[in-house]
């Protein structure tokens, strides 16, 4: 296409022709450099950051398939296009071919993409289902709570189980919606960092205290919105290697959105225990008997005997 057009360009811009073609050359050079730079950085040809979860590898696999497919389509269509543009440019004495179309061709180029696209959709949805299987039994459950503009993680205490919580009780005074009169509540370990063991499934319960935020870690190939008033309980992952990453909020949530991040540390199992156990024990030691139920707190009007359910998955159909 470029070659076909340059003659007419030159004709009309005689004086600036050489300058323009030099600029064009420079830019084409830059465009070639761009993918190359990405390659160097990420250590693979797609320019993706390293992938550190099991499900992330499945995402990458389908990403790769689509990449090769679209790259082929790109080269074929644009290639044909450029050939046509050059070959069928106006030449004296050559009249255009008179044709209104061809129904056989129409049928072919309707069915072929339909088959390809449906196959992609079926394959994609199979991976989607695999990624969203219920979390395994041995998973570590962490309550991830987002707010304008930051994150708080809640880990199980010595009992090994998160204390029960109810999204409807979430308020500025009670950021996790837990029951203050429950002795287990004080045992929970609260952390500003997301610390997780490598090789063990991690199940996150996503919460928001105000607006919609999102749990996004590019290296995990994972994105999920945290919706206020709900517990999103279908996200789990298993890290394949250790390292430090960053949890990012990727849903516009206000002025501080650009900086709403939290550190992620993926540690070997022993080191993870070394991090978690002292905190659990500290909380167990200092946990005092529950405050008197008369104290004005947001969940006081709820019957204290009734145990609040631990909402790990969505129970009611939502939207």
């Amino acid at each position: 296409m470029i070659r076909a057009m340059i003659p007419s360009l030159k004709k009309s811009t005689l004086t600036s022709g050489s300058l323009i073609s030099r600029v064009v050359q420079g830019i084409i050079f830059l465009l070639l450099i761009v993918p190359a730079m990405a390659e160097q950085r990420a250590g693979n040809i797609y320019g993706l950051p390293p992938c550190v979860t099991v499900s992330g590898e499945k995402v990458d696999a389908i990403f790769r398939i689509i990449f090769y497919l679209t790259a082929t389509v790109f080269v074929l269509t644009q290639g044909t296009y450029i050939v046509y543009l050059i070959k069928y440019r106006r030449r004296p004495g050559v009249k255009a071919h008179y044709s209104h179309g061809n129904n056989t061709l129409e049928i072919i180029w309707t069915t072929l993409p339909t088959i390809i696209f449906l196959a992609l959709a079926i394959y994609g949805n199979r991976v989607w289902d695999e990624i969203h299987r219920p979390a395994p039994e041995n998973a570590l459950t962490i309550d991830v709570s987002s707010y304008q503009f930051g994150w708080q993680m809640r880990y199980p205490g010595v009992s090994g189980k998160l204390s029960p919580s109810d999204v409807r009780a979430i308020s500025p005074q009670n950021p996790f919606g837990t029951d203050p009169s429950d002795p287990r509540t004080a045992q929970d370990v609260i952390s500003p960092d997301l610390v997780i063991p490598v090789g063990r499934p991690v199940h996150v319960l996503l919460h928001s205290r105000d607006v919609i935020h999102s749990f996004y870690v590019p290296e995990f190939r994972l994105y999920q919105d945290c919706v206020p008033g709900r517990t999103i309980g279908w996200v789990w992952f298993q890290a394949t290697r250790t390292g430090d990453f960053q949890l990012a909020c990727n849903q516009l949530c206000g002025t501080g959105h650009y900086n709403m991040k939290a550190p992620i540390h993926i540690l070997p199992e022993e080191e993870f225990q070394k991090w978690l156990t002292p905190r659990q024990q500290k909380n167990a030691a200092s946990s005092t008997p529950p405050a008197s139920p008369t104290q004005a707190d947001p969940v006081a009007h709820k019957a204290p005997e009734k145990e609040l359910p631990l909402t790990t998955t969505e129970t009611k159909p939502k939207l």
């Binding site: 995402v59 990403f63 990449f67 679209t70 992609l120 994105y223």
Partner: peptide, 21 residues
Amino acid sequence: VIGGLSGIFMASTPVDLFVHH
């Protein structure tokens, strides 16, 4: 064609887990 082909990436549910937003 370029814009449409990148649409195919996002249309695939698992890939959108990565590229969304």
